[in-house]
């Protein structure tokens, strides 16, 4: 990394830093793929299976870059094992505790998704 502070104008320095970050941390771009994928599932019914075996089904309300998930109108598989969830109607799930997210096949355009993955993989390598 070549850091020269010869130009004191903010704009030039900002662009330098931006470009450096882009090349330095190419995976940044790659992170967007799955995040974007989840955004296309907004308002669909999905089932989130957590690493503690709790499965929560609900309507996907929002998702962020950590893949934290907001679900509305939730129901829990096996409520006898998870009685604390009975009175909970909407919830936030931390992305890091998710094992799987299950969804209907018709809510995903697989061709589009594969193309996007190839494109992002190529971009990330530059």
């Amino acid at each position: 990394m070549n850091i020269k502070i010869q130009d004191s104008t903010h704009s030039t320095r900002y662009i330098d830093i931006y470009i450096t970050q882009r090349t330095f941390d190419a995976s940044q771009l790659f992170i967007m793929l799955i995040f974007s994928f989840f955004k296309t599932l907004t308002d669909q019914v999905i089932t989130v299976e957590l690493k503690n075996d709790l499965s929560i089904t609900g309507t996907l309300k929002s998702v962020d870059q950590f893949l934290n998930i907001r679900l509305d109108g939730i129901s829990v598989e096996d409520p006898e094992r998870h009685p604390h969830m009975l009175a909970v109607k909407n919830c936030f799930i931390r992305g890091s505790v998710v094992r799987y997210v299950r969804m209907a096949a018709r809510s995903v355009d697989t061709t589009l998704l594969e193309d996007a993955t190839r494109r992002e993989a190529k971009e990330a390598k530059k």
Binding site: L50, I56, I74, L86, V88, C91, R94
Partner: peptide
Amino acid sequence: RGENVVALGEIDLIAEDMVPL
């Protein structure tokens, strides 16, 4: 601390009274 959090759920106050606990 966030790293210890699994989930956060809003408790439905009406449903809470009907839960058979």
